[in-house]
Write a protein that binds this DNA or RNA. Structure first.
Lengths: 111, 111, 111, 111
DNA sequence: GTGGTCTAGACCACC
DNA sequence: GTGGTCTAGACCACA
C-alpha cells in the first residue's frame, strides 16, 4: 500500500477494502479490523482509518455494531459490483476510449 | 472552458494546452496567449495561468522568450504523445485491466 | 537568514536547505519546518516557502507526507552533491577558467 | 549567442562586448555596430541593444558621437581588466572556493 | 507590452 | 495541525 500517491489515504483505504470484497476475500458478515489495529498495521493514523470506515458505512458496504466492530453488509459484493460497473461504463470507459483515440492506441493492441 | 472541480485549475489548463498540441492546433514555435490574456479569457487569475505555463516549461512543452511571451517547443507534439503513451501503457492501462477483471467486464463487450 | 536581492527569495530558501543537507545538518527522513513555521521564522510569506518546498519536491530532495509535513528524502545528500558537482564541473568551471584566462589570472596565484 | 539563459539579454550583450575588448578584438577608437545593425544581426530588439550601449557608456567603456555611432574609449581594455579583476578576486573567487570546498573538489584536480 | 516574484488573505481537503 | 490552491493586487526587470 503506497500512500505517496496523489489520492487521499482514506480513499485508498476504501478502495482496498472494496477490492477485497470484490475479490471475495471479505464476505458477508465478516468482521474487519478495528481502526486501531488496521491503522497500526498499515502505518496510518486511526482517525484516517475511521474516516474510511465512515464513508464505507455511508455507502452501505459495512456496518457498525457498537462496541464490537465493523462488519461487511449482506450483499456488499453485489452492491459494490453494480455501483462500480455503472461508474465504469458511464464515466470512466468513455474517457479512456477518448484518450486512447487521441494517443493513437487501439484496445486490440493492448490485450 | 469548463473546469472540473476535482482537479486543480492550473493542471486542467496544462491539460487543455497539451490537448491542443496533440490535436495539432498548436504547432512548433506558435505563440500562446499571454498569462493576462488567457486568464481574462477563461476567467482565471493570471497567476494561476502563470503557474500552468511554469509547469509546461519545466516539462519542455513550451519555452519563454523574455519580454515577448511563451512559445511551443520544437517537437512538443511528439514529446507529449510519447509521455502520455508511456504513462497510459505503464500505469493507467494495467489499473484499468485489473479493475475490469474485478468487475467481470471484458474489453470485447465494450467496443 | 539574510536575503540577497539579486536572487529570488524562494530560490535562496532552496539553496539554504540544500546547504543544510550538504552540511549534514538535515539527514534522511528528518522533518523540516512547516511552511507556516519557517515563513514566520524568516519573515517570509508561507506561500513563498511553499513554492520552495514544491521545487525541492520536484528535485527529489524532500517529500511530503499528507497532512504531516515535509521530510528529507533518502539519499538526498548524495543527490544534491552529485547534481551540484555536475553543474559546477560542466557549466561553472569552464566559464570560470575562460574568464580567468581573459583576465590573465592563473589558478596558481590564487590558492 | 544564446538568449534563453537566466541572464538578461542586455547584460549578455554587455558581457560579449567586454569580452571582445579584453580579447583585443575591439581596440581604442574602434567603431562598434549601430544598435539597429547589431540588433538585426543577433535577432534582438534595437531597444535592448541601446540599453546595453547605455550601460557601457555609463561604465566608460564606449562613448557616443552624436549622429555617427559608438566608439571604444581610450584605455577601455585596461579599465575592463582592472574592474573585472577586482570583482573576480574580491567577490567571485571566494565564493567559488567556498563552494568547491562544500562539494569536496580541489582546484588542483581541475586544471 | 511581457513574465517573475512576493504578499496577504482566503478556503479546502486531509491527518 | 498540515499542505494545496486560488484570488487580488502590487512591484519589478525586461523587450
Amino acid at each position: 500500500m503506497e500512500f505517496n500517491s496523489n489520492k487521499s489515504i482514506y480513499l485508498q483505504i476504501c478502495d482496498s477494502i472494496c477490492d477485497r470484497v470484490l475479490a471475495g476475500e471479505l464476505k458477508d458478515q465478516d468482521r474487519i479490523q478495528s481502526v486501531r489495529e488496521f491503522g497500526a498495521e498499515i502505518g496510518v493514523n486511526p482517525n484516517t482509518v475511521a474516516r474510511s470506515y465512515e464513508k464505507l458505512t455511508d455507502d452501505g458496504i459495512i456496518y457498525n455494531k457498537r462496541g464490537i466492530g465493523y462488519f461487511i453488509c449482506d450483499g456488499a459484493r453485489e452492491q459494490v459490483l453494480a455501483e462500480q460497473r455503472k461508474e465504469f461504463l458511464e464515466v470512466e470507459w468513455p474517457a479512456i476510449k477518448r484518450k486512447m483515440e487521441l494517443l493513437g492506441l487501439s484496445p486490440d493492441q493492448l490485450d
